[in-house]
Design a binder for these strands. Structure first.
Length: 705
DNA sequence: GCGGATCAC
DNA sequence: TATGGTGATCCGC
């Protein structure tokens, strides 16, 4: 690495000096990137960046942020002490309200696979394990293994720069089919703990295990015991190399559940995951990062403990605080979450109500604890980066290609839309969007292309016929499902009726599409049970059962073992139960890393208490699935009727005239029957879901000055 | 309704 | 040689 030679040859003009470019410097807030020689790494990055068009654009953006900071400071100086005082009072009111709404009753786990893509590649090519390796291409890396991270090589870094940082770096091309497969395996495990788990991407998911913890109290040992993969089984303490451990048993607490999930992921996929366990999504997400890789963090659901932790936690590591907000905050002296509280008056005066609401929740360690299923998707788009195109004909040819591609996706997803957006990035990396909204929804290539063509024409004119692009994209928003409203309503009707009666959740998972491109190849989206409204008596009854079980959240839970202590939440009870059980020598639950044998005995008083509970309560569990015909209300038991037979019955009911008349009246379209079996299958696919905060629905926020 | 910006993965 | 693609949201106009 002959850095000295390089630095002399750069001949920077003063205004090009890289020292101010905080945007470009290494982002080391990622696991496995501590204690690096940042200065040296940044120098290599700069040496390979300075002078490029990319760099010039980054410089420009840096300038913009700096000017925002400047304006902010001027504004700050103009505030009167009176204004500050009033703002502080207002802030305190908001903070109090957030505090009053603090809810520690739920238990959320965030699971994050360690260096996912890289780990999959290492698993399949073990020789890569000891070598610096990254997944992606010379243009861009998706992720890197921990060996490569030591060189400063990380996700979202172009491969050619990574190669400069680490000449021996092996770059493996992405193989999404493989990652999808592995992801499916992990999701099968997740759904056993929370059937409505919230998959954020191929390697990340939130689970609400509150209900699981409640059920788990009744689990016997067998249900908490999982086998080792033959090649992964450790030898026992007996010292005999052939004496392999065959299984691992997990206890009752949330931490044990996280260990169990991670254990099962490892045995099933040979990959490790990290986990965060907390009362809300923000803390759970933070937690999964803290002990990465192959570790976990548990946040005790205790207000003071959470406050103690969050006070010194860097704002940048909170989900939603990006590069720019970090810089804005930094200029105000806000670096840790606790600083937000100190600066609450100023923040109130400088940022929008939406932003402040988010900041304040953040500094109290509060966030959503509800995993909401996705709503309908709001847009669909496709874009491509290419080597510079300046020729008009070629530009339109590219547009044509993109429109065809978008049309294919729209058809797959059964979507149409009224607003078309053209996105361009010129050779100087400047982004522009131009959009047009029309009255009749665009449904296919024939309707998209003319609109897109108009927009591109305008862009070319704006550029004086000298448009040179490196990226083009087309997208559609103001979407509608391509099914007719009659179809939508009847499908909704079915969805409500045929939902398995054994479901123990009020929120039915959406069959909307994942936002992830990699996942976009499943069945068309059916947004056919949006509200999950109960439409017959059986569902009403189901609702009532749910209300009753959720009501018990406000009651206290006695320990089935000692019977003396009462707990507000099942999470706390489970925690106590673990302690209770571990003090009982005959019923010890070993930890993952512990090499001691688990004693398989059933003489423990705890065990007896638990099996008694299991027996006495088993009658409330609904195992049989019941389908009822939405037309004639006849009931069908899953044990006696196949879905196919049930479909046939519904068909025959539908063939009678009444229902068709109703449909015709609605908008004159014929009803197209959908496969209910398929529909139920879709329910089990993992989807990207929104995380709404409990009170006001604010989670994402943005700042503008 | 539009366009720019920010953020996450 | 060379710095991604998709989706969402917010803000100011």
């Amino acid at each position: 690495m002959d850095v000295s030679k390089k630095s002399g040859s750069n001949q920077l003009k003063p205004h090009e000096h890289p020292a101010q470019l905080t945007r470009m410097s290494l982002n080391d807030n990622k696991a496995g990137m501590q204690g690096l020689d940042k200065e040296k790494i940044n120098k290599i990055i700069m040496d390979n960046t300075v002078g490029s068009r990319f760099y010039k654009n980054e410089q420009k953006r840096e300038q913009q942020v700096n000017s925002r900071i400047q304006k902010m400071k001027e504004k700050l100086n103009s505030f009167t002490s009176n204004q500050i005082m009033t703002a502080k009072q207002h802030a305190d009111e908001i903070l109090l309200e957030v505090e009053n709404q603090r809810d520690l009753s739920r238990t959320i786990i965030h699971i994050d696979m360690d260096a996912f893509y890289a780990a999959v590649e290492e698993r399949d090519r073990p020789e890569l394990k000891q070598k610096p390796m990254a997944v992606g291409g010379m243009d861009m890396l998706s992720t890197s293994n921990y060996v490569a991270r030591k060189y400063g090589v990380r996700a979202a870094m172009p491969g050619f720069i990574a190669k400069k940082l680490c000449p021996n770096l092996i770059i493996v091309p992405t193989n999404f089919d493989k990652y999808r497969e592995v992801s499916k395996e992990t999701q099968e495990i997740f759904s056993e703990y929370d059937e409505n788990f919230c998959g954020m991407s191929l390697d990340e998911a939130f689970l609400d295990i509150t209900d699981h913890l409640q059920k788990r109290i009744l689990y016997d040992q067998e249900e908490r015991t999982f086998n080792y993969h033959p090649t992964l089984a450790p030898t026992t303490t007996s010292g005999d190399a052939n004496d392999k451990k065959t299984s691992e048993t997990f206890a009752f607490s949330a931490e044990e559940v996280a260990k169990e999930i991670r254990f099962r992921i490892h045995q099933k996929t040979l990959l490790t995951a990290s986990a965060g366990i907390a009362a809300n999504t923000m803390l759970a997400k933070i937690g999964s990062d803290l002990n990465k890789p192959n570790g976990q963090t548990f946040f005790v659901p205790n207000r003071d403990e959470i406050m103690k932790f969050i006070k010194d936690f860097p704002v940048r590591k909170v989900n939603g605080i990006g590069k720019v907000t970090e810089q804005l905050f930094s200029s105000l002296g806000v670096k840790k979450c606790g600083d937000i509280y100190e600066m609450r008056a100023e923040l109130m005066l400088l940022f929008s109500a939406t932003s402040c609401s988010f900041f304040f929740r953040m500094c109290l360690g509060c966030s959503s604890n509800i995993l909401e299923p996705d709503g309908e998707r709001k847009s669909i788009s496709t874009e491509r980066t290419f080597s510079t195109i300046s020729d008009c004909d070629e530009l339109f040819a590219k547009l044509d290609e993109l429109c065809h591609s978008l049309a294919v996706d729209m058809k797959k997803q059964n979507l149409q839309g009224k607003t078309l957006t053209l996105k361009t990035k010129n050779v100087d990396f400047q982004l522009h969007t131009r959009s047009k909204t029309i009255n009749v929804p665009m449904t296919n290539y024939q309707t998209i292309f003319p609109v897109a063509q108009e927009l591109l024409k305008q862009e070319i004119l704006n550029a004086n016929n000298k448009l040179s692009l490196r990226l083009m994209g087309v997208g559609l928003s103001k979407l509608e499902t391509a099914t007719t409203s009659a179809q939508t309503s009847i499908l909704k009707f079915f969805a409500g009726n045929t939902k398995p009666q054994s479901s123990d959740k009020t929120v039915s998972p959406q069959t909307s599409c994942s936002r992830d491109h990699e996942w976009s190849d499943h069945e068309p989206c059916d947004d056919n049970h949006k509200n999950g409204d109960p439409v017959n008596q059986k569902d009403m009854k189901n609702e009532l059962i749910q209300v009753e079980t959720s009501k018990t959240d406000t009651e206290t839970f006695p320990c089935p073992a000692c019977g003396t202590e009462q707990f507000k939440t099942t999470a706390l009870l489970n925690q106590h139960l673990d302690a209770c059980l571990s003090s009982d020598k005959t019923f010890q639950q070993p930890e993952i890393k512990s090499s001691s044998n688990s004693t398989q005995t059933s003489t423990s008083p705890c065990k007896t208490a638990i099996s008694n509970l299991t027996n006495s309560n088993s009658s409330v569990m609904l195992d049989e699935t019941t389908y009822s015909c939405p037309i004639c209300c006849a009931s069908f038991q899953s044990s006696k009727t196949t879905l196919y037979q049930f479909n046939n019955h519904v068909d025959s009911c539908l063939s009678q005239s009444t229902i068709r008349d109703i449909l015709k009246e609605e908008n004159g379209e014929p009803f197209k029957k959908r496969s209910l079996a398929n529909h139920n299958n879709n329910e089990n696919l993992s989807k990207r879901r929104k995380l709404l905060s409990k009170g006001d629905g604010i989670e994402k926020f943005f700042v503008q000055l």
